[in-house]
Computed example of a mutant assay.
Amino acid sequence: MKVFVVLALALAAVSAETVQQVHPKDLPRDTKINGRIVNGYPATEGKAPYTVGLGFSGNGGWWCGGSIIANTWVLTAAHCTNAASQVTVYYGATWRTNAQFTHTIGSGDFIQNHNWPNENGNDIALIRTPHVDFWHLVNKVELPSFNDRYNMYDNWWAVACGWGLTTAGSQPDWMECVDLQIISNSECSNTYGYQPDGILCVSTSGGKSTCSGDSGGPLVLHDGGRLVGVTSWVAGNGCTAGLPSGFTRVTNQLDWIRDNSGVAYY
């Protein structure tokens, strides 16, 4: 029995060493998966009114997702804002670039978590925006309350919605959503090595996952509709590999979000 235990631990160690994590926006644009949420379903109009598209300028430009958390704030991933000179925010779009309206915002209104990228689990950023009014196609998503800050949400179901670029990046894509089950960090660590509490992982069984173009987008609980994750990374060997995907855990960022934006729920 001891021999089998040692062998199992050795295999786990090898797995943790060989599986890499990559930001979805940095994956190659694959013609087969069209760079979007894979194996999901088309969103109905108004399904995720808190989701915004983010078209960043700088070094060729790139596409990310984000979440409206208040009339003047959008939450996204720090790796999305990094090295960007400005961003165009697409509000209320079901087709990626066919928005209800847009705002273009300079990098002076980006706030990255100061612990990123030196500490895993801090891939998060705020974008200060002009005031937007809320209606059924453009609305905020609520954060978890401070009472839930220690809830790990293991085995809870959540939904991720967003867009990804096609190979040429020139044609608009319809918003896609995918339902994902949150897994424990210990289970996630079996694949990638130790994952701190600041990381939230989901199962991607059946190839259901976030992918290129979905960086920074929301993960929202089915039960209660609270934002619990910001899309951060996927397995380096592909979105459809069936390996866990990682999000920045929003409950670990509640103090940072409150201190920088004033948005909090008690």
Rank of each mutant, 00 (worst) to 15 (best):
V234D: 01
N252A: 11
A77V: 04
T44L: 09
C177F: 08
P218W: 00
K25N: 11
P172H: 11
G164K: 01
G65I: 00
P28R: 10
S209A: 13
N118P: 05
F134C: 09
P28T: 10
S145N: 10
Q181Y: 11
T76N: 07
L9N: 10
L243T: 01
K208H: 11
N39D: 12
K32S: 11
V202P: 04
A241Y: 02
I127Y: 10
N237W: 08
D173F: 02
A241S: 15
A160Q: 01
V19F: 13
N151D: 12
N139Q: 09
P28I: 05
G206F: 07
G169M: 07
A78F: 01
Q21T: 10
T104W: 05
T166C: 02
H79L: 01
E45N: 13
K140E: 11
N82R: 14
L9I: 10
I33S: 15
H103Q: 15
S85K: 15
N98V: 12
V5Y: 14
M152P: 05
P218E: 07
G206K: 03
D148R: 13
C177S: 12
L219S: 01
S189V: 07
N185T: 09
Y90P: 01
S107L: 04
I182C: 08
Q100E: 14
N115I: 00
T204R: 02
N252L: 03
G53H: 03
V234E: 05
V234Q: 01
V228D: 02
I69N: 00
N155F: 10
I183G: 05
W163P: 01
Q253T: 02
T166N: 15
G66K: 03
D259M: 11
A241Q: 02
A264E: 09
T231P: 02
E17H: 09
W95Y: 15
Q20M: 08
C177T: 14
R258H: 15
A48G: 00
G225H: 14
E45V: 12
D123W: 06
Q100H: 06
Q195P: 03
P244G: 04
N59Q: 15
Q171F: 11
A84Y: 03
Q112E: 14
F110M: 07
L219I: 06
G65P: 01
Y192E: 03
L200S: 00
G53P: 02
T231I: 13
A84T: 05
T191Y: 15
A83F: 15
N155I: 06
H23T: 09
P130T: 07
G207D: 03
W63M: 08
F134G: 07
W62H: 14
